[in-house]
């Protein structure tokens, strides 16, 4: 194919741009393990309250950090106030008891879908103590815009 010179220059540049993007994603994604929440674990959505994994939604602290067990339900999150320590890894384990919800901690990269029948799980560190807004970011019915919760990141006790 006869490609005009200037367009050929641009096509090489465009290829280089694409490779630079892919390289950045690979370096941080595979090298630095920065990946989207992609946990594969299923649960019966009609039995969430009885399931031992979700029967006691709460924050469990341990020496290394904390584990948050929570679920979304039209139109709120349980627990509605989540307290976690700053500067330590926090693992979230969540699901939905009815329709698909979203879970976004505003101002952070903690963002996942809560799909009924599946357990969403990810780990992150909150460096900045303070109060964060948690919102549902997937339409779940007429009360969607009311569905929110609070995350309180506390300075670790000395």
């Amino acid at each position: 194919m006869n490609v005009p010179l200037y367009e050929k220059i641009w096509m090489w540049a465009a290829g280089a741009i694409i490779i630079a993007f892919i390289a950045m994603v690979l370096v941080t994604g595979v090298g630095g393990a920065l990946q989207p929440p992609s946990h594969v674990e299923t649960i019966d959505p009609t039995q969430v309250f009885k399931d031992p994994r979700f029967a006691h939604p709460a924050v469990t602290l341990d020496t290394n950090g904390a584990t948050v067990v929570a679920f979304g339900m039209m139109f709120g999150f349980t627990p509605a106030v989540i307290r976690v320590p700053a500067g330590k890894p926090v693992t979230f384990r969540m699901t939905s008891t009815d329709v698909t919800h979203g879970f976004l901690i505003v101002g952070t990269n903690a963002n996942t879908m809560l799909v009924p029948g599946y357990v969403s799980q990810f780990t992150t560190v909150f460096r900045q103590p303070g109060e964060y807004l948690i919102v549902c970011n997937e339409y779940c019915g007429l009360g969607h815009h009311l569905m929110s919760a609070k995350l309180i990141v506390e300075q670790a006790a000395p």
Partner: peptide
């Protein structure tokens, strides 16, 4: 693109599965 990647995404702190 790199500005958003470095100054927004990475600055906010990573998430691991």
């Amino acid at each position: 693109w790199f500005a958003v990647y470095l100054l927004v995404y990475l600055r906010r702190g990573g998430v691991t599965p």
